[in-house]
Amino acid sequence: MPTVHQNRRRPKMRQMLQQLWHALMVGWDLYLFAFGYGIVFVLLGIAAISLSGHSMSTSAMSDGPGWTAPNAVHWFGTSRDGIDMMGPVLHAAGRSIWLALLATVGGSLAGLAVATLFFFVWRERGYRMLDRLAGWGAAIPAIFMVLTLAAGHGAGFGVTLLILSGLCALFVAGRSGRWFHELESSGDVLAARALGYSRRRLLIDHLFTRLWKHAAASAATLLPGVLLAEAALGFTGIGAQVSPAANRIGMLIAEGNETLFDAPWLVFFPGLVLWILCVVLATFAWAVRRTLGEAIDERLF
């Protein structure tokens, strides 16, 4: 028999707090990842905005070398004109990682939108077509496509964003076709179809509730690869005639490469920061996939 205490009506505020606490406790691991991503992106975003960009262009150096090897004061050493390299490296890393994030999120949403269009119009035939298109796309290394497109259109922030988003969209559209195909043949969707649900209701009530997990895990998995592709584009200096990849991590490594034998730290630290970022993002991706119960193809990881 319930006690008086249990029967007493709880205040609304307390009820809300309890619901909030419950929601937080249920998805605590996801919030933790969001917090982790937030720290990485916010800190590097602040670095990208507040720290000034800097070019080590050798042509601008008239006087003798003024660089200093890494020491207790300048952890990343200094450039030839005496600038502490930590600022430019973090600034470039911030710009690159935000570009990669925007490209991944934009491309994933675009890919998902394309697959959704196919869900309404071409259905099964469309899914197969998307899957095949993505398969053909996989026969050309993604980095080759990035370099080729940048050769004609430049490597500026907007163009790189567009190129990388397009490639992500191609990949995610192919994947989404497969997800739609799998979900449409699952028991509850078949039952809903038998009950006469409209395509729109089917999509909102049954497919999107599961699709977002696939999409989130896929985007998290793509992110470090996109960052690496962006850095490779900056490193090669392709598209500089049209618009160079200014103040980005790959370009910083390429500039350091020009004085590799005299000041190796100008190559070492930007590359190290890039590697650490890729590993951190890949670890987050692994954890996100695991939390969401996703079995994404490990070759992407």
């Binding site: 470090p224 690496l228 850095a231 490779a232 490193f235 490594i253 490469n257 590799l260 034998f261 190796p264 190559v267 070492f268 590359g271 890039l274 590697w275 890729c278 590993v279 890949a282 670890t283 692994w286 990881f301």
Partner: peptide, 22 residues
Amino acid sequence: LLAAAWLPGFWIASLAVWWQVE
């Protein structure tokens, strides 16, 4: 191995070149 999978190869190549010379 996770860390190795994300090594920027072009960066490693530059460091290898420097190591040889140095």
